[in-house]
Amino acid sequence: MSRIPFSPITINWTLTFRCNFNCRHCYSRPEKAQELPTEQVKEIMAKVARYKVPFINYGGGEPLLRGDLFDLTGYATGLGFNVSMNTNGFLMTEDKAALARESGFRTVGISIDSTKAEVHDDFRNTKGSHKKAVSAAKFLKEQGVRLTISSVICRINHMEFEDLVRQARDMGAEQISLHNYKCAGMGFANKDELDLTPAEWKEFYLKAIALREKVTDIRISMDDPITATIHKAPEQAIVKGSTCGKLSLNIRANGDVTPCGFIPVVIGNLLKDDLKDLWDNSNILEKMRNKKPKEKCLTCKHYEDCLGGCTARAYATTGDFNSPDPHCWMAK
């Protein structure tokens, strides 16, 4: 690997922890934090822009619940950021889709976890949510906003991911992200019911990687370091292992900074701290960038590429960044 970039490439930003949904896998439902007013969010955006961070992605909570979402986005794009968001789509209207275009969203991602409306609605605990997500995608496409689809892979859909890819392509999405299940927040509480076994993860990734190589009319993205065991990282991979704390950081609704949305360890707050100072000097980031093999990773031939897999999952289940990823299917 070459060196860590001089500042993050992507800031994942939770503008609000509020949500109109109550999904069974959500990492952020148990999170609470004071939400910053518009001017303070802008103040942080201006500070981050000094370090030429190219991408901001709003995660959730549900970004459309913030009344100032398009004002903030217009401000951010004016500072040079490429802005995207993940939304459940429920509150998207034709007017809001037009505002998404006008404020300069580079892409908008809609979450859809099943091609079957009743399965999606049940998983997301909201009746009618599949239908609304499909209309949200249509409104955005009509406005010429670039569309992506996000699906959290888990027990309800791991056997039908090919249908999810087809559905996303038919909706006109340019990318589908097949997110690995995170044992954080509600995801941790519901992991026995929803998470796959390591053998099932292996089977899923083997099939999904084969499909990704075949499909040309939509990009399939799977950002999971554990896949280093079945294929070499592409030549252009800038860093190995988890990318959090190496290419990206997470900002919470109150300005707190964590290495990633799934690692609830606060390394500073951007109302008072300097982004570059945190990026260069945080002990936590230093530990995540220089993991030490432990247990079965000690003798694993994939360690150099995998670096123990997903740091968030390891930390959520054992409290130690260096533990082997619980999704890892390699024998002990």
Binding site: S2, R3, P5, F6, I9, K52, P54, F55, N82
Partner: peptide, 8 residues
């Protein structure tokens, strides 16, 4: 989208 890595 691109950026010069000044330190590198």
């Amino acid at each position: 989208i691109w950026r010069e890595e000044e330190e590198a």
